[in-house]
């Protein structure tokens, strides 16, 4: 419990520091950020108005104070190009992103668990070499390229899936997001599969697995109840660690498949110099990563009674 308490505190500190980084981002812009944001055709009066609204006419500490007090009331400023509050805009788009993340985690587990089991059981056999080769290739696959090829094959040539978008219903989401989720799942498959394979191999050699066989359990019971179950702890940890990587992946994949998610919002905001959106998306993503890592820390003990009770 003390460990988890410590994790909560360090997560809170990390979150606070992230707000500072995000706040400071606009001060990295060379020249006057407000003029950059509004472009060349802005009148001096609109520039002055936005400068005041964003607090740039105050000293740095005052600006951060203003930023934080607005943040606590759920206000991340207004988008320049959409003329809307950033917070609502990002949250609205986050749904598609989270759906995509969850979908690809499910797909990658469906792929990774069986292949890791096969590779571990048939260790050093041809099927194991083939799967390990597959992991190696999948890790090197650029998502934007594989996504492009998948669109070409399954959307443009045989019209199995829509080319772009997010769909309107749950089944619509499932169908529209299948190719993007699969694209992301390939890389995750490799990472999870590799890790789970070596975790399984470690567990396969443990005395309690030998004893489970000696006491007369069927091979399948030993494999699923004893080997797989105890290896899943490490998989949960890996998913947690990789989440940041996965969210980063959605930014690219959303762009490839034109999904109206928050990653796409971010990329478009860069081109329209809509810095409040860049700040908003960065902050929301960092918060997500910190929170979900914290959740993994709480889930892990549930999978391993030794940790739970110490």
């Amino acid at each position: 419990m003390r460990y988890l308490g410590g994790r909560c505190i360090s997560s809170a500190i990390a979150l606070l520091l992230v707000t500072f980084v995000v706040f400071f981002l606009v001060h990295l812009i060379p020249g006057d950020p407000v003029s950059v944001m509004l472009g060349q055709h802005a009148t001096p009066s609109t520039v002055a108005a936005l400068r005041h609204a964003m607090g740039f006419d105050q000293p740095l500490f005052g600006q951060y104070w203003l930023f934080m007090s607005k943040l606590f009331s759920g206000n991340l400023g207004d988008s320049i190009s959409y003329q809307q509050p950033v917070f609502g805009l990002v949250l609205g788009r986050l749904q598609a992103t989270l759906f995509l993340v969850a979908y690809s985690i499910v797909l990658s587990l469906l792929l990774a668990v069986p292949s890791a089991l096969i590779a571990a059981v048939f260790r050093e056999k041809p099927v194991d070499y083939a799967l390990r080769m597959g992991f190696l290739v999948a890790i090197a696959l650029p998502s934007f390229w594989i996504g492009t090829l998948l669109i070409y094959q399954f959307s443009l040539k045989i019209h199995l899936f829509p080319v772009a978008g997010y769909g309107d219903t749950f089944t619509g989401h499932l169908s529209s997001l299948f190719l993007p989720a699969f694209t992301l799942a390939l890389g995750q498959w490799a990472i999870l599969g590799r890790n789970l394979r070596s975790a399984l191999i470690d567990v396969l050699q443990l005395p309690y697995v030998e004893f489970a066989r000696m006491k007369g359990l069927r091979g399948s019971t030993v494999l699923f109840r004893h080997v797989l179950r105890t290896s899943l702890g490490s998989t949960v940890t890996i998913i947690g660690i990789n989440l940041s990587f996965l969210i980063a992946g959605t930014v690219v994949v959303e762009h490839v498949f034109s999904i109206p998610g928050s990653g796409n919002l971010l990329v478009n905001a860069v081109f329209s110099r809509d810095y409040p959106i860049v700040q908003g998306v960065t902050l929301v993503y960092a918060t997500l990563v910190i929170l979900i890592n914290l959740v993994t820390d709480f889930v892990y003990p549930a999978l391993d009674p030794r940790v739970a009770l110490t």
Binding site: A14, F245, V251, I290
Partner: peptide, 18 residues
């Protein structure tokens, strides 16, 4: 902690944007 909290490509995009 801070750097790892912001997903890699997001942080890079934000930095390049600025």
């Amino acid at each position: 902690d801070v750097v790892t909290a912001i997903p890699g490509i997001v942080a890079i995009i934000a930095l390049i944007a600025a």
